[in-house]
Design a protein around this nucleic acid. Structure first.
Ligand code: MN
Ligand code: MN
Ligand code: ZN
Ligand code: ZN
Lengths: 130, 130
DNA sequence: TCAATACATTAGAATCGTTCTAAACTGATA
DNA sequence: TATCAGTTTAGAACGATTCTAATGTATTGA
């Protein structure tokens, strides 16, 4: 992303020092799956001393503006996904890693949803061994 | 289940008062999705004064013996499923409820897994609106 | 330019589901 | 029935996340 400050402003987010650093990292063109912890570690390596509270705040702010997707994969932590298109994932529990599945998959044989409910979205999670 | 004590013994679990009550409820022939909290509430209504610690212990003991499946649907709580067959779910975030999808669904167009990894299982979660 | 102010950052406390600890209890066995 | 391994339990601890409230900063309009 060339002009992160402009990008943040466009999304009604003040381009603070912290948000610029985080947005520069997250939206560098390479899709990422981060947790508060993995992001914090990455920022520490970059010598960016951003508090955990701000990391949580920023992830949620970005999420609220639709810049990130939330993935509820396991009960231990929340993943945020920079790929906001509808897509599926490989998940390796072993190395706690997600990999995007961008090809168009089809689910067939789906039964009707229960009365008065309608399908919002279908999520396929492919668990990997090892 | 007719003989819960025998059933527990068969699974190398001592048929204690608490386990018998919980197993009688969980394995009554109707598949269930419970959390520690929903199970605790149900047991309270049945006037069974079983501590939360025991509820957690028992759910995990049953899980370890393969009598329950664990479902990591969201980051707020762990669901245990009495249906241990491979199957999929409708999930209503709104009423925090899971519904089994027992029909045989097919996922087509799945790409190859990454090098050195193989597919363990495919889980389809159908999110319901409302 | 520069207050005034609305918004953002932060350390640390609080929350909450879950796990751990260690003392009391009980089912299995002889 | 005594023994003891396995179980239950209250309450403490844990860990991810959220909250609080004090401090800092981006924005803006005079
Ligand atoms: Mn939890
Ligand atoms: Mn969490
Ligand atoms: Zn993704
Ligand atoms: Zn199920």
């Amino acid at each position: 992303m060339k002009d992160i400050k402009h990008f943040l402003r466009q999304n009604s987010l003040r381009p603070t020092k912290q948000r610029v650093i985080i947005a520069n990292y997250l939206f560098d063109g390479i899709n990422k799956h981060v947790t508060a912890e993995t992001l914090s570690n990455k920022l520490l390596k970059m010598k960016a001393g951003i508090s955990l509270a701000t990391i949580y705040n920023t992830l949620h702010d970005f999420y609220e503006k639709g810049l990130l997707k939330k993935l509820m994969i396991n009960s231990e932590r929340i993943y945020f996904d920079t790929n906001t298109e509808h897509h599926h994932h490989f998940y390796s529990k072993n190395d706690q890693k997600l990999i995007d599945i961008n090809v168009d998959m089809k689910v067939s044989g789906l039964p009707k949803p229960p009365k008065n409910k309608k399908i919002n979205k279908i999520e396929v999670l492919v668990h990997l061994d090892n």
